[in-house]
Amino acid sequence: MDNQQPNNPLHKIKLADILEYLVEYYGWEVLGEKIKINSFNNNPSIKSSLKFLRKTPWAREKVEQLYLKTKQK
């Protein structure tokens, strides 16, 4: 039962890994411009951003979509 989500491009990718990739790729400043959330713009950190994203589905969705777009480049 390892392939429960074969059509999900984010299957088995951790939110922390997605965020770390985006921060490395864009940096906090550009990431904060692309996705306007406080945890990216005011004293950003992986820990505070993950906490916010885990509680906020709309923000997590934006981060995941940006990740997918970035990986396609």
Rank of each mutant, 00 (worst) to 15 (best):
M1N: 15
D2E: 13
D2W: 07
D2Y: 11
N3D: 12
N3T: 11
Q4W: 10
Q4H: 09
Q5S: 14
P6F: 08
P6K: 07
P6Q: 06
P6S: 07
N8M: 06
N8C: 07
P9Y: 04
P9I: 01
P9V: 01
P9W: 03
L10M: 13
L10K: 13
H11W: 12
H11Q: 11
H11V: 00
H11M: 08
K12S: 14
K12W: 10
K12V: 11
K12A: 13
I13Q: 01
K14M: 02
L15V: 05
L15E: 02
A16W: 01
A16E: 08
A16V: 07
D17W: 01
I18Q: 07
I18R: 04
I18S: 04
E20I: 14
Y21H: 12
V23M: 06
E24P: 04
Y25S: 08
Y25L: 09
Y25E: 14
Y26G: 01
G27F: 03
G27P: 00
W28F: 13
W28P: 05
V30N: 14
V30D: 13
V30R: 15
L31M: 09
L31V: 03
G32I: 09
G32A: 13
G32Q: 09
K34S: 06
K34W: 05
K34L: 14
K34C: 05
I35M: 03
S39P: 04
F40P: 02
F40H: 06
F40S: 04
N41W: 01
N41C: 11
N41D: 10
N41T: 07
N42I: 15
N42Q: 15
N42H: 14
N43C: 07
P44S: 10
S45T: 14
S45I: 06
I46M: 07
I46S: 02
I46A: 05
K47L: 09
K47Y: 12
S48L: 09
S48C: 08
S48G: 08
S49D: 03
S49G: 03
K51R: 14
F52V: 00
F52P: 00
F52G: 00
F52H: 09
L53K: 00
L53C: 03
R54I: 05
K55Q: 04
K55Y: 02
T56N: 15
T56S: 14
T56K: 12
P57K: 13
P57Q: 13
W58N: 12
A59D: 00
A59T: 01
A59C: 04
A59S: 07
A59E: 01
A59Q: 01
R60E: 06
E61Y: 12
E61Q: 13
E61W: 12
K62L: 02
V63T: 02
V63N: 00
V63C: 02
V63I: 12
E64A: 05
E64Q: 15
Q65G: 10
Q65Y: 14
Q65H: 15
Q65E: 14
L66E: 01
L66I: 08
L66S: 02
Y67A: 03
L68M: 08
K69N: 10
K69P: 02
T70P: 06
T70Y: 08
T70F: 09
T70S: 13
K71Q: 12
K71M: 11
Q72S: 11
Q72M: 05
Q72A: 12
K73I: 08
K73Y: 10
K73G: 07
